[in-house]
């Protein structure tokens, strides 16, 4: 409960804080709280991967980009209040739709399983290298392609 409040709060601060660096720091905090949720759900493997990938790799990437771009002037002009109001109403409608769907489907949810061991490293490793070995290998190709693409984009263009 406390963890959920913390994640919602930090997620809000990501959107609302004015300086991009603050947003990144709040996002790191939000990711850690979501990692806490994974731990509470007995998903140790996902917790480890989440912390390594998000808090480790992606956030470092964001911070590096921010420092590379050097946006200290924080001259981001705010959008008009009318647009903000409209957008807030749209988001509120989205939330309303989602929650009503949740309430509607509450009765048709199946009974929870009693086996909560699935998130351990051993079980997930068996699943990953057993049934899902082909998608797993394709993911590695995807990451390789992304790496090559990022390097190519980052290179200085010589005319």
């Amino acid at each position: 409960m406390i963890l959920a409040t913390l994640s919602v709060f930090s997620a809000l601060m990501v959107v609302l804080s004015r300086k991009p660096v603050h947003s990144v720091l709040y996002l790191i905090f939000c990711f850690f709280t979501i990692g806490g949720h994974y731990l509470l759900l007995n998903a140790q493997f996902l917790f480890a991967v989440h912390i390594i990938v998000y808090a480790g790799a992606i956030m470092v990437l964001f911070l590096f980009t921010l420092m590379f771009i050097n946006m200290n002037q924080d001259a981001e002009p705010v959008k008009s209040n009318l647009l903000k109001g409209v957008v807030t109403i749209v988001a509120g409608c989205l939330l309303l739709v989602l929650t009503t769907t949740v309430i509607d489907t509450r009765d048709s949810l199946p009974a929870p399983s009693t086996d909560y061991q699935i998130g351990t490293v051993a079980n997930l490793g068996k699943a990953l290298y057993g049934d899902y070995v082909l998608p797993f290998e394709i993911t590695s190709i995807l990451l390789l392609a992304a790496m090559v693409g990022a390097v190519m984009l980052g290179k200085k263009v010589k005319e």
Partner: peptide, 25 residues
């Protein structure tokens, strides 16, 4: 976790990989 199925968590793993690729590019 609720259903005791590994498929969902494997899918989360793949989503993380895609997110990492997307952020890099």
């Amino acid at each position: 976790t609720m259903h005791g199925e590994a498929g969902g968590q494997v899918m989360v793993f793949f989503i993380m990989a895609v997110a990492a690729a997307e952020v890099a590019v």
